[in-house]
Nucleic acid binder design. Structure first.
Lengths: 345, 345
DNA sequence: CTGAAAGCGCTTACAG
DNA sequence: CTGAAAGCGCTTACAG
């Protein structure tokens, strides 16, 4: 049975040196039962002398807890990702959890399992938007594995906590701003990917605003932005080529807005004079692009922080809030046509 | 011994159902020794029927391998982080490794251990720049734990692989561009944090360029940029307030460049007409800020991808390249004063 | 090609 | 407050 004996010191070594059983050492380690004072101090001493670090894998196997949570993303890209991860990491590390990350983009894994992350190696999962198929989600739900959804509400028949941001009212407000302050009437709406829930709510807000102001909704004005610079740019080119008239665009998110502005400018169209464009998210560079972006501020880092907290809650207590809807606010800069930056709550 | 029996199916269940020993199942699972054909097919069948997923923790404990690598960062921020992580994740997932992430920013952990990540839970570590103190690094080196450094070369007496980018020549070239094409003579250099190695090489390139063109290096022109929007902005304000004359600034990186441009513009100074400013990195939004940034393109995603590959190499074979220096190129846009975008290799 | 058994390093009822 | 021992779910020499 020659195992590749790890060179490091084990609980057994500590026990032997201290003249106690491993059970006692374990108890001392976990503060699970008091140990006599002199044993405690002896143990403490020996442990620091030998530089003992408990073997977490062994502990995981024995306790059936991993003390790690997993984050599942479709892909790792965009300025959006950093604050989200930052928020998540701060909550997990604060609570002594490790953070495992995996993207589901690679078709390779898509096969057998996004089970790259699952009950085996995590105590629970944070899943961003649509990075899991519904059947995969249902599988976790069936086996009662803790999951919290980020920027996605669960299907009706699954009770899975979710943390996301308020989309509809903010979009309504920013569209209304375009209409009331800048007399825009032909506003393009760029959707996110198929099934993207944020996009769904934003579209609703958009339509509500048009309706309120008695502007008919022209189907030609609803195009794909994909929350992506490239996709939005392509759609914009198509729209321009088709000669569809419009005087403003709600790009779906800031990434898309940047792509839109670039092709508009390239086409010799002035933003915002000729066409207003607004984004969503208020990414960190939004104030620095040209023109500075009018957009909706989404508290992305907070979303991450809260989502992780909710998951940890769920893991520890078995229950938690079902829905956390974080507030958004519109921030006016210049890309809409305003000249003075302001925030509207 | 009532354990919180995990509800899931184990190798034992499979063995029993198939009428073979667990050893055989294990061998089939790992393709470690051939098994007879009918056993194989029976096993396959049963495993899919029972939806068997091997328990990775148990395997880790038995093999003393974790099949996960860890990434240690100072903090999770900036547009720089996303491509780096993206590159890392693509290499790790491709090779079947899990990715554990931890930031070392929190003073809490700083104490006892950035050993949040270490031999216990990973097979090796990717450490970014100065996220580990030298003594921590030395500890890992002493116990021969696989580590690869990103954007940092190891101290002379430690043989630790490193992957980073070429800094000096690119900085030399971009400074020379400022001098030759735009007749700049009073060029501010913004340094990164104390001990930041990229910054050290960039400063060298800067000084070499000045020297070549017989421009004396004015100490007043060397200030702190901290690779940060805010720090760079503050330094710029100080410089302006002090009345130090200058006609260009090498901001250290793109983040800092954005901060610099913002305060310059706010002060009514025209960029690039009055003052040229250039960055480093070529972050994804660099073409979209105003004015579009002249900068050095660093292949950050590639750095991540390669670094992970090198580490996996090291873990598997015990040896690998000591130094990988990825090439950079300067990309000319408008913030230097040029009107035509170009790339100079 | 296969099985019996020891072992990986912990935790935790059980019985003092 | 403490110890002996079983158990977590795998892997892998050893001996066929």
């Amino acid at each position: 049975m020659t195992k590749p004996k790890t060179s490091s010191v084990t609980i057994r070594d500590i026990a032997r040196q201290a003249g106690v059983s491993v059970a006692t050492v374990s108890r001392f380690l976990n503060r699970t039962t008091p140990v006599s004072e002199d044993v405690a101090s002896r143990l403490q001493q020996i442990m620091t002398d030998l530089n003992y670090i408990p073997h977490s894998t062994a502990r995981k196997l024995a306790t059936n807890r991993t003390d790690t949570i997993g984050l599942l993303m479709m892909d790792i890209s965009g300025d959006f990702f950093t604050p989200l991860l930052n928020g998540i990491e701060s909550s997990t590390s604060e609570n002594g959890f490790d953070l495992l990350i995996s993207s589901t983009r690679h078709p390779v894994r898509r096969n057998m399992a996004s089970y790259a992350l699952g009950p085996n190696n995590t105590d629970g999962l944070l899943v961003f938007a649509n990075s899991l198929r519904e059947d995969e989600l249902r599988h976790f739900h069936n086996i009662k594995f803790p999951v919290v959804l980020i920027h996605l509400t669960p299907p009706d028949d699954m009770k899975i906590p979710c943390v996301t941001v308020e989309n509809k009212a903010a979009t309504f407000k920013i569209i209304e701003h375009l209409i009331e302050e800048h007399q825009r009437k032909q506003i393009v709406f760029m959707a996110g990917a198929e099934g993207q829930e944020d996009s769904y709510w934003r579209e609703l807000g958009y339509k509500l605003a048009l309706e309120k102001h008695h502007i008919p909704c022209d189907p030609a004005h609803i195009v794909m932005g994909g929350f992506s610079r490239h996709i939005a740019a392509d759609s914009m080119k198509t729209l321009l080529a088709a000669g569809v008239p419009f005087d403003a665009v709600f790009a779906g998110d800031d990434e898309a807005a940047v792509g839109v502005i670039a092709v508009l400018q390239e086409a010799g169209i002035h933003v915002p004079h000729d066409i207003s464009v607004v984004g969503f998210d208020d990414q960190s560079l939004a104030p620095y692009v040209a023109p500075p972006l009018t957009t909706v501020r989404a508290p992305t880092e907070e979303v991450g922080r809260v989502a992780a907290r909710v998951l940890i809650d769920l893991i520890r207590t078995g229950q938690t809030d079902q829905l956390t809807l974080l507030p958004t606010e519109i921030v006016i800069r210049q890309s809409c046509g305003c000249s003075q930056p302001t925030k509207i709550h």
